[in-house]
Design a protein around this nucleic acid. Structure first.
Ligand SMILES: [Zn+2]
Ligand SMILES: [Zn+2]
Ligand SMILES: [Zn+2]
Ligand SMILES: [Zn+2]
Lengths: 138, 138
DNA sequence: TCTTGAACCTCTAGTCACTAGAGATTGTAG
DNA sequence: CTACAATCTCTAGTGACTAGAGGTTCAAGA
């Protein structure tokens, strides 16, 4: 049994974040000492590691809630898990696509001005003022 | 002179968002009718288009505030504008880098399970439980 | 056993860029 | 003149935390 601080150190999840996850129902309510402090065991550590890893991969709290629900029922079909992973993947791909378009425009915009001129003639400002300068929709 | 609804239609920025931008100081306080409704002119339209375009490119409100400040002083050096654009570009590149790592892992994870099995044996859940399955840091 | 101070507790509020809704007032077409 | 869509202000909610106030508990050293 160890404290919330120790759990934090082991998982690299900040203490207030751990309490937040408990509030959100991601972590079961921890056992408490007689003085009302949280105590965790190996199961708590593993669950939080799972959450941490899923968050690092960009899954939402809501998605993680479903995944944990599933994890707690080993006999259920894992279809939902795959669905969630696939949908997360397509979200990520969408974001990459969008960011690549932005990268293109921002590269052009940045290159267009050396920062030595005056606001009035600035290519950055002109480009922002008029989307016609852009090569793509974004 | 046109109403906030008309401005909204022309810029594709929602009415409450326009009011929000005014509140944040991005838009000058609009003129008002005797009945207190906002009225805009060409200048207002252009400014909002600028804001919209910058937001589409991912600039923060704070960054846009600096850019607008600069735009209002045509004689100033445009160094800040380039700095902001360059920093935005590097933000975008960072994000792309990170998302590509996620894409890799998520592809592997998604492929590892067809959703036909049972939670206990699910590769998706196992991968989330243990970062050791991963090929990269993320 | 006592003391000190780091770690813990709860609660509220702030972040960013909006979005939603309530309840009241205004503008405008028929 | 009447309807009613559009506008107004104000408050609160979103997601995933983060910060801070003010109070309590734990554990190590004297
Ligand atoms: Zn410039
Ligand atoms: Zn553009
Ligand atoms: Zn599976
Ligand atoms: Zn991993």
């Amino acid at each position: 049994m160890f404290s919330i601080g120790e759990l934090s150190r082991r998982t690299k999840v900040k203490v207030p974040t751990i309490r937040y996850y408990e509030e959100m129902g991601l972590l079961a309510e921890a056992e408490r000492t007689s003085g009302n402090q949280r105590r965790y065991d190996k199961a708590g550590l593993e669950r939080l590691s799972f959450i941490r890893h899923a968050r690092d991969l960009g899954f939402s709290i809501e998605a993680i809630l479903s995944l944990i629900e599933l994890q707690d029922h080993p006999d259920r079909s894992c279809e939902t898990a795959t669905d969630i992973a696939v949908s997360q993947l397509s979200d990520v791909r969408e974001k990459i696509k969008r960011l690549k378009l932005l990268e293109k425009e921002l590269t052009r915009i940045s290159k267009g001005c050396d920062g030595l001129g005056v606001s009035e003639d600035c290519y950055v400002l002109a480009s922002l003022a008029d989307h016609e300068h852009c090569e793509n929709e974004h």
